[in-house]
Design a protein around this nucleic acid. Structure first.
Lengths: 163, 163
DNA sequence: GTGCTTGCAAACAGTTTGCATGCGG
DNA sequence: CCGCATGCAAACTGTTTGCAAGCAC
């Protein structure tokens, strides 16, 4: 029923994102540049949830001359090109994650203790949300749902707690 | 099953919030001031979801000398005193709403067309969320859920569309 | 009076933008 | 070489904070 999705599950799918971005650029007459390639690589190599500054730091390891503004501009382009989605969890920093591909939408469970983010999909919840919207006289377009929780078995948590 | 809550439903309950805030101030040795009273009045008179700037504008109608910083400081105190809860819907501005009283928790449905915000409570969703968390090995503490939708009958919407 | 409060301006964090220069196609 | 891209610094938004003066108790 409830399906957890580990950060690794979608790794194979990321392979063609280079192509997706490339053709996006071409279609708009935009250019492939060294910095855009480096930034995309950094994004692909990173975990599922990253913020601009993390990427900027990562990118600077390869080329320290790349500016924060370029990272922001490029992340926005990737969002426009449907590679990434922008999320606002905590409040301040925006975080980016890979866009869902077709049907593979998911929601998030965030551990209050260690900050671990688990992605999941639950058909019952999805269905009930549509019903609820209809009951209220609306047609559901999409939703945002985050469950805040704490570990039952502490094993998952403790690893991260120390960091 | 699904219960909608209109903005008016909780009006009677707001009456004693003055007292709540007052005793909060007393307990901490803080002072009741003209500006705090004015700000609380503005909050009480406002709709369920307000941002700092809206309150600041409202407050300035009564006393134009009241600064934005005071509004922020006071809204934070009201949040600390459990009168208000801070929410982050869109991304930029924070919005404040009256805190749930005991069991009367609710979620939000936001109309993509007119921006109307409907509050609702659905026991099935709540229950399923707990199950999902448990399935993933966590204990649910609380959640954040927003349904984005469009009106089925346009009557609700059109009124607001014009504004 | 004591010290919490206030308004103002300055500081802040995250993000965006203007501009002269650089570089891809 | 045309014109998009870049880096830098400055602008901007929402919010917070330092400070001297003001007011509640």
């Amino acid at each position: 029923m409830t399906t957890a999705r580990s950060p690794r599950d979608s790794l194979p799918k990321r392979a063609h994102l280079h192509q997706v971005f490339e053709s996006y650029l071409n279609q708009l007459g935009l250019r492939q540049t060294r910095q855009r390639r480096i930034i995309l690589d950094a994004v692909l190599a990173s975990g599922r949830h990253v913020d601009a500054e993390t990427i900027a730091n990562e990118v600077k390891k390869t080329d320290s001359s790349i500016g924060l503004a370029t990272v922001y501009r490029t992340l926005k382009m990737m969002t426009d090109s449907q590679i990434l989605v922008e999320r606002h969890f905590g409040g301040d920093r925006a975080s980016f994650e890979f866009a869902d591909q077709g049907d593979e939408h998911h929601d998030h469970l965030i551990c209050k203790q260690c900050g671990e983010i688990v992605e999941f999909y639950d058909a019952d919840l999805e269905k009930r949300q549509e019903e609820v919207a209809k009951n209220l006289g609306y047609k559901l377009i999409h939703h945002k749902m985050e469950l805040f929780a704490e570990c039952l078995g502490l094993d998952k948590c403790e690893r991260k707690n120390s960091k």
